[in-house]
Write a protein that binds this DNA or RNA. Structure first.
Length: 414
DNA sequence: ATAAGGAGACCTTCCACAGCTAGAC
DNA sequence: CCGTCTAGCTGTGGAAGGTCTCCTT
């Protein structure tokens, strides 16, 4: 039973790499992800034991199987199975040994031998990323070993506030994330981390690297603007009347859509933020998301039940590149407006599966990774033209002029 | 503890020109 | 209102040079 490794095609696949969208056996996983520093940062998790195609997010204790959020949702949505106790499955990056894997996935009885010969020591530094649906966002002090009681998962499913209302909570969430993957997963007072560069001793893990503010394309001049004194007052944070209404209108989404988008929260910018007309909560929504992700209306996995309080959202515009996608803003919500799920939020969003948050966050991270390292080509024809254009010291030259570099034949003409 | 200097990473600029856009007719 | 024409703008890759950051002395 199961599927073969997408890489070697011989071994049974055990883990799923979201970045590569690949199912891998442990040996190939280690080989593939030790290739370079970037690939070593790919977040992997166990493969779903039911569909064998999606990453697992939870382990059903009763059935002793790992489940992706779809299978988990389908399998535990009825009365007979809804009481099943489930345990969150951690993600990892780097090149963990079999012993390390068995430590984080204690329920897996045996791991095949992993060939780690080509895995550099540095890359071998494993980082464990808690599934966001679980320990990190779970009740404080409830994450000693990554176990997630049924209450945690079920509460998430029933009462999963995709967003919260204060930026400070986002800080807590991030700090929580950083804290919890130190291995001890202790629930100590969260430490506020800046970028890794500035606080190398504090934020030394892949997970948090992905959560640096820099990585979210925020253009805040400093943290105070984002998390500072006005963090609990969105009106202060986004109350910028310099943006005229015409611009706002241009980007404004329909009221109905705003509910959905509001779930996805913020992409804030100091340069072009737009105030909310009713800053009842500080959910900032990037208008890009409205523009680029109109499908939210129709996609139940993305658009969640309307939440009246969130119909009054704070809009902000950062890059306005037109390249953003739902993923960006999904993550933005985690970053900027993420309220811990235990935070009382009422009945809104009650039907949104917490697993979707995990999925959304993952999609965001993958996209962010791609965007960071892959240049976006808007016009293939222009690229094709540039690719064959002759140059002198890197500069284009007129057709017929002397050149020192010809991309087609690598010849020189002097 | 501070300054100087090197190394490396990162950013900006430049070039020609096909293709795109907006305005005029 | 619709089609055509035209002027101006945009974006594309590689190299060079400038700037910034980190580390060592």
């Amino acid at each position: 039973m199961g599927s073969l490794c997408d890489f070697c095609g011989e071994q049974r696949s055990m883990v799923y790499c979201r970045s590569d969208a690949a199912r891998l056996c442990l040996s190939c996983d280690r080989n593939v992800h030790s290739a370079n520093a970037l690939s070593s940062r790919h977040s992997r998790t166990l493969l779903c034991d039911r569909c064998f195609s999606q990453p697992a997010i939870a382990r059903c204790i009763e059935e002793n199987i790992s489940l992706c959020h779809n299978c988990d949702w389908n399998g535990h949505n009825d009365d007979s199975a809804s009481g099943h106790k489930r345990q969150a499955i951690n993600c990892y990056s780097g090149c963990p040994s079999a012993a390390e894997l068995s430590r984080i996935w204690s329920f897996v009885t045996e791991f095949p031998q992993i060939n780690d010969s080509n895995c550099e020591e540095e890359m071998g530094l494993m980082s464990i990323s808690e599934n966001y649906v679980s320990t990190c966002w779970g009740a404080p002090g409830n994450s000693s070993n990554g176990d997630l009681a049924m209450n945690d998962l079920n509460n998430m499913n029933k009462n999963s506030p995709w967003i919260g209302s204060s930026s400070s909570s986002a800080v807590n969430a991030m700090a929580c994330s950083a804290n919890q993957q130190t291995g001890s997963l202790e629930s100590t007072t969260p430490k506020l981390c800046g970028t890794e560069m500035k606080n190398p001793g504090i934020c030394k893990n892949d997970f948090f690297e992905d959560f640096t503010v820099d990585d979210v394309d925020l253009t805040f001049e400093n943290y105070e603007e984002l998390f500072g004194g006005s963090h609990d007052n969105s009106k202060q944070l986004f109350d910028d009347t310099e943006i005229d209404d015409s611009f706002f209108d241009m980007k404004e989404m329909s009221a109905g859509n705003s509910n959905c988008q509001g779930e996805f929260g913020a992409e804030a910018s100091s340069s072009r933020h737009v105030k909310s007309s009713q800053p009842a909560c500080s959910n900032a929504v990037s208008a890009d998301s409205m523009k680029s992700n109109p499908g939210n209306k129709a996609d139940p996995s993305v658009c969640f039940p309307a939440r009246k309080a969130y119909s009054s959202v704070s809009l902000s515009f950062s890059g306005l590149t037109g390249e953003s996608s739902a993923g960006d803003h999904e993550m933005s919500s985690v970053m900027l407006t993420g309220e811990p799920p235990w935070f009382p939020t009422g009945n809104e969003c009650s039907s949104f599966p917490a697993a979707n948050r995990d999925s959304a966050v993952m999609r965001y991270k993958e996209k962010k990774k791609n965007r960071k390292f892959d240049k976006k080509i808007r016009y293939e024809s222009r690229k094709a033209r540039a690719d064959v254009r002759r140059r002198v010291k890197g500069r284009f030259v007129k057709a017929g002029d002397a050149y020192d570099y010809d991309p087609l034949c690598q010849t020189r003409s002097y």
